[in-house]
């Protein structure tokens, strides 16, 4: 009796955990299964299975070119957010200046405002200066919502860097620029990579803001998916979703292998 009670408790606990994970993963699992359906509408469970939807996705020029644009936008946003995040983090972590509190708040602000509100605001600002439906416009908009993340991850890395280590480099002959290049930058690289990956992933699947500022020329993959869903619902969307999920998982695994994401975050 004494033995079985903790066993039962552990069993119940594990079952609960498994059920919780199943609940969380259920949408992904269902999308995954539907993506192999042969019918031309979305329903569960599928009647028969094939890779037909995947073939159609890869043959769809709209999706492929939108994917290319999303990739380019994501990469530029990732790099840009890391560069801006690095500069902002350095000034916030290392310097005292007037208005530091306000800058800190402004960096946090995009977290607090719903994306739909941001989207309307960004559209109203960009329309008169001709940034709607341009790469510059979408990249600026995405930088606005991703920089808060890179600032956060880089700040965390920067806080853990021992100032004495930088001082030691300085004393032993490194110019301030050299100290940054040889000491500070390598030591915060986990934060840079984590921030860059997060920024890329956010930009890559951001739909709300993008819908308001892009149309034909710079449409991204999420906006194309949205438009596609307005007129048709077939397993192509499920197949495309699976591909996007695999890309995200792939990126995360690559980072985990490379530097250890847990360490980076």
């Amino acid at each position: 009796m004494n033995q079985s009670t903790p066993f039962l408790g552990r069993f119940a606990w594990r079952t609960l955990l498994v059920l919780l994970y199943l609940f969380l993963l259920a949408p992904i699992i269902i999308v995954f299964i539907i993506s192999f359906d042969t019918r031309q509408y979305l329903a569960f469970p599928p009647e028969s299975y094939s890779f037909g939807s995947y073939a159609k996705v890869f043959a769809n020029p709209t999706f492929i070119s939108a994917f290319g644009r999303s990739l380019i936008i994501g990469l530029v946003v990732g790099l840009g957010a890391v560069a801006a995040g690095m500069l902002l983090s350095l000034s916030l972590a290392r310097h005292e200046f007037r208005g530091k509190g306000s800058v800190n708040f402004l960096i946090l602000a995009p977290f607090l405002v719903p994306h739909i509100v941001l989207a309307v605001g960004i559209m109203l600002v960009m329309a008169p200066i001709g940034l709607l439906d341009t790469y510059a416009g979408i990249i600026i908009a995405h930088l606005g919502i991703t920089i808060p993340y890179t600032v956060r991850t880089i700040m965390m890395s920067l806080m853990s860097v021992d100032r004495r280590v930088e001082e030691a480099a300085l004393v032993h002959g490194a110019s301030p620029a050299m100290v940054f290049w040889r000491i500070t930058l390598p030591l915060v690289s986990p934060g840079l990579i984590a921030g860059g990956v997060i920024a890329f992933l956010i930009s890559f699947d951001e739909a709300t803001i993008s819908l308001f500022i892009v149309s034909v020329r710079t449409s991204t993959l999420p906006t194309e998916i949205f438009h596609y869903l307005e007129y048709s619902t077939d397993p192509q969307i499920a197949a495309l979703s699976v591909i996007l999920i695999l890309i995200s998982v792939g990126v995360v695994i690559a980072v985990e292998r490379l530097i250890g994401l847990r360490r980076a975050l």
Partner: peptide
């Protein structure tokens, strides 16, 4: 340095 401050 007191903490040695080696480059980790």
């Amino acid at each position: 340095f007191q903490s040695y401050a080696l480059f980790p």
